[in-house]
Amino acid sequence: MNAGGATAVDQVVFWVLAVLTTFFAGFTITRRNPVTAVMSLVATFFCLAGIYASLSAHFLAVIQVLVYAGAIMVLFIFVIMILNREEVAPFSIRPLRVLGVLGGVYLLTKLVDVVGVGLPEAAPGVTPDGFGTVAAIGEVLFRDFLFPFEAISVLLLVAIVGGVVVSRSHQKEVAAVEAADYRHQIEELAHHDYPGEPEAPTPGHH
């Protein structure tokens, strides 16, 4: 197979990584055990980091490993440790959702169509020296995108504060949610034919 001027090594690397990425991604969403899922997700991210590297995005490849495979995955695993529960029926396959997935497939094939038309068949030529290195990205980041960069750091700060606030144990709110739930249940009961109060047990009768 000829992939438009790419070297054989390039091709082999791409195909191997692409197949692995797809495989692990599929594995991630089909595992019943969340720990397995999260591990295959880590594998997906590693493979992706390889693909990033093959795209000359060295800095991003490193970031991918550090942030995703490192930080985010640790977070996931902590949470799994807190709420690890086996699921009886992990999949909720309903016609509407399947239709939704099919809709997504259709959308993406359309995108492939339109993107494919604009792209050349061949791989782009040699990338300039230093493309994708820390120095090059840093120059763009701090010259052209200084404000978004600072804004992102604020976003991260807000996310941290938000995470703390949301997951904090607050008894009052929980009580309020429970009360609302209880009311809801009573309403639902009122709409059914409720048999009424159970009769008080008669003395001497078992």
Binding site: I63, L156, A159, G162
Partner: peptide
């Protein structure tokens, strides 16, 4: 990636 990190933090907190 930064956004994903923030999203994961808040999402997991939720």
């Amino acid at each position: 990636i930064a956004l994903a990190a923030a999203e994961a933090a808040v999402g997991l907190a939720i």
